[in-house]
């Protein structure tokens, strides 16, 4: 997995076969903010283009999976149209993006691994929290389980291998880090990532419209709260975090 410069990615869009009901448009290799931003621009263009037969898309770190109905279109018809949409993606646009301010109660029972992460990084726990709250995270993709958000933008000082022993259950709302990434996990699940804290915000809630708060391409900032604030906020239903609007031009401001 290579990490390239956050600015001016050299995109080389190519089509990959994915059976008789899907195509993949791959823009490059590895994990990088500019590459992922280009993926989300392509994903928006595909949605706006309304190509016949396209059923859904799955934007990921460096590619978009395009699911289509083989009764309505074919790779021969769809492929060139997708490559056409993938032109000139490298230039950042000033399209507005959402940035969520997500409250997190770090450490203690809410984030059992915070002290270990700090020790391995030769930092104090407060310094680790400060680094997380200064970072400008981008939702690289959602995957693995409903609403699980992979966040790019973890400060270099905090890159650490995952746990040797994955936990069988991590609590809903966990804010975690693993390798070069951070994540928010709205449902309880097994995980080998390090638990840093918990957010009282339900980023996935079937009773809310829309049920998913975060979308691929959104930006995230964490804001520390106390355990008492966590309890107060967790007791409220349908809670949404504060939101601001940013653009791609501001990307990497905290990098």
């Amino acid at each position: 997995m290579s990490v390239t410069s956050p600015s001016s990615p050299s995109l080389s869009p190519r089509l990959l076969a994915a059976g008789d009901g899907a195509l993949i448009v791959e823009l490059g290799e590895g994990v990088a903010p500019a590459l992922n931003a280009a993926v989300h621009r392509l994903d928006r263009r595909i949605a706006d283009a309304g190509l016949p037969g396209v059923v859904e898309t799955v934007p990921t770190y460096r590619s978009v999976l395009v699911v289509f109905d083989p009764a309505l279109t074919s790779p021969d018809a769809l492929g060139p149209a997708l490559l056409d949409l993938a032109r000139d993606l490298a230039r950042p646009t000033a399209e507005p993006q959402r940035r969520w301010i997500v409250p997190v109660c770090f450490g203690g029972a809410h984030g059992e691994d915070l002290d270990d992460v700090a020790r391995r990084a030769n930092l104090t726990s407060d310094e680790v929290v400060a680094l997380h709250c200064a970072a400008d995270y981008r939702v690289y993709m959602l995957g693995f389980s409903p609403g699980f958000a992979y966040l790019g933008g973890l400060p270099d000082a905090l890159h650490q291998p995952r746990r040797e022993n994955p936990r069988m259950v991590t609590p809903a709302g966990s804010v975690m880090q693993g390798g070069a990434q951070a994540a928010i996990s709205p449902i309880a699940m097994p995980s080998g990532w390090h638990l840093l804290g918990r957010t009282p915000i339900k980023t996935f809630d079937l009773r809310r419209t829309p049920p998913f708060l975060l979308a691929p391409g959104d930006r995230i900032r964490f804001s520390p709260i106390t355990a008492a604030e966590y309890d107060r906020l967790a007791a409220r239903d349908g809670l949404s975090p504060d939101q601001e609007t940013v653009t791609d031009d501001q990307q990497g401001a905290a990098a």
């Binding site: 009901g21 590895g30 999976l65």
Partner: peptide, 12 residues
């Protein structure tokens, strides 16, 4: 055997 995680089509 590691790639950057991407979407999984049916039947992959």
């Amino acid at each position: 055997f590691n790639i950057t995680s991407d979407g999984i089509p049916l039947g992959a």
